[in-house]
Design a protein around this nucleic acid. Structure first.
Lengths: 139, 139
DNA sequence: TAAAACGTTTGAGTGCACTCGAAGCAAGTA
DNA sequence: TACTTGCTTCGAGTGCACTCAAACGTTTTA
């Protein structure tokens, strides 16, 4: 979604409606290899093809990839993301499952934020020890 | 450090000063295999041995493992943790390097927290869409 | 038209962080 | 004494998420 928006906002247009694999690689930071792999495992829906069989990504695909990128940052396993993608493909009757999956993910993210803040506190303590000339062993 | 402290606070003693590998496994959640592997790669300092050659972990070791656990949560590669452990072993003249390493890690952690909060916002938007009966495709 | 740049597929390889198995020794228990 | 449990080492295996190679087809530029 945000990639789509940024294209729209920086070009003043809706943007092209078809992107080659190398364009998408440049936009997302993923490699072409990874994009093909994502499609193969079902993390990307069936990508449109040109008349010669080359991939042509839509803005929807870009939006989905941006979201997947965020999920990846949470440490969600690819298999779970594939599961979510499958639910989306299966249509409207999976809405409850999807919401639940997202809520579980949300809880995980909150936990991870807490863990990281905890770690941050430990790091600050250690760094402050180094800052002063206290000479303690950092264990 | 916190493991040591919690032992001290729950037993009212300083705690034993030597722990078997299975005790440490139970305390840290790591497997005995992993603990041996940590020592082998230099992530743990040389662990003391009993007269029969069995490992006897000290409270210092426990504290170090707790810290390593925190670093692991940040996604720091094991190789970097080994590097830090080496600096500690090399003594006081590596203090500056160590502080710098910790400060770089601190910056990484802050970045990751920001990323996660960003992801949280996206999740909240999506969840709110599911919460209301808006029927939009989540892409 | 020729060359380069980019695309396709399948299947195999890589790097990380464990994780396990096998073979064997040592201490404690019935 | 026999059994159980736990320890040792070494090297191989696992699961994840890519990552690459090979062989070939297509599109664009000079």
């Amino acid at each position: 979604m945000s990639v789509t928006e940024s294209i729209a906002s920086t070009t003043g247009l809706t943007g092209k409606d078809r992107y080659t694999i190398s364009e998408v690689a440049a936009l997302t930071g993923l490699t072409a290899h990874t994009l093909r792999w994502y499609e193969r495992i079902g993390l990307l829906p069936q990508v449109d093809r040109s008349h010669t069989g080359q991939r042509r990504f839509t803005e929807q695909d870009l939006g989905w990839l941006t979201f997947v990128g965020k999920l990846r940052l949470t440490g969600m396993p690819v298999a779970d993301m594939v599961r979510y993608a499958e639910l989306v493909r299966q249509g409207d009757h999976t809405r409850d499952d999807r919401r639940e999956l997202l809520e579980a993910t949300r809880r995980d993210v909150l936990t991870r934020i807490t863990e990281l803040q905890d770690t941050l506190a430990v790091l600050d303590i250690k760094i402050s020890h180094y800052g002063t000339a206290c000479g303690g062993t950092p264990s």
